[in-house]
Amino acid sequence: MQFIGAALIMLACGMMGLTVARSYVSQAENIKQLITMLQLLETEIGYARTALPEACRRISAQLPGAVDSFLTAVLEHIHAHPGEAFGDGWHAGLGRLGAWGLPAVVLNDLTVLGEALGVSDVEDQRRHLQVTRLRLEDAYRQAEQEWRTNWKLWSYLGFAAGLLILLLIF
């Protein structure tokens, strides 16, 4: 019985540590996906002159996960509120993207981009997309660094904490 209890404590603490460690990985992965989304958006706008809703639909189909969830929310909002600004839909999408544990700086950059999307010529749209992409690349480098620093730490820390609890109990 004692052995089962000890195993459960170790497992629970270990899993908690691994979950925190995993969150660093997924944060970096999600930022990378957003960078890809911006590259695809730039292609759709700059070369194909695709209208934003259609561009969002195409990109959403290519990038599952956070980007799909975000763009689906944008499209749902646009569909449900015809006549509203695209920026309103983008803002609604960011609400859902917030649940994917992205840093506030990334969400802020995307908020600023949403206000500029679709309201000017191709040249200007490209500039906005490129600036946001550069900022997201910075955020990705930082997230990658955090991931490398903290991943191992949290992976072991959970099990170490479990061990400490066992030592204190027994």
């Binding site: 706008i45 600004a85 010529d121």
Partner: peptide
């Protein structure tokens, strides 16, 4: 402004 936005499908660049 709102009419232009709806007319262009929120994509001014596509109608440049």
């Amino acid at each position: 402004a709102r009419t232009v936005q709806i007319l262009t499908n929120s994509s001014w660049y596509a109608w440049e």
